[in-house]
């Protein structure tokens, strides 16, 4: 795997993680978590773990995001921290 690409993806993953826990709107946090899952999936595909990558893309970034959006729409969207 190319070193510069690897480093850039790791940087994006950390930025997405910090943004997902610090944004005050819960729906935005869920979307940023979906972006985090896709960056993680790219990272795994670069490491050669293609099976793990497409399982993550379909299960965690797909079904997980849908479950979180359903839960946030059933409850409150605002958060205090």
């Amino acid at each position: 795997m190319i070193a510069a690409f690897d480093f850039m993806l790791l940087l994006f993953v950390i930025i997405c993680a910090i943004a997902a826990i610090s944004v005050k709107d819960l729906l935005s946090a869920v979307y940023i978590l979906g972006a985090y899952s896709f960056f993680m999936c790219l990272l795994w595909a670069g490491m050669g773990a293609v099976d793990v990558a497409f399982t993550e893309a379909s299960v965690s970034a797909g079904i997980g995001t849908v479950l979180l959006i359903a839960a946030v729409s059933k409850t409150k969207r605002r958060s205090k921290d």
């Binding site: 993680a17 997902a20 826990i21 819960l26 946090a29 869920v30 978590l33 985090y36 899952s37 993680m40 990272l43 795994w44 490491m47 050669g48 773990a49 793990v52 965690s60 997980g64 979180l68 839960a71 946030v72 409850t75 958060s79 205090k80 921290d81």
Partner: peptide, 28 residues
Amino acid sequence: GKRNLVKKIIGMNLFQTAIILFFVSTAA
């Protein structure tokens, strides 16, 4: 550290994903 329950669940997801990333990287 966070008080919102959905934020706690998002943190749990980040934690588990980091552990999976570590395990996959030992295979490289």
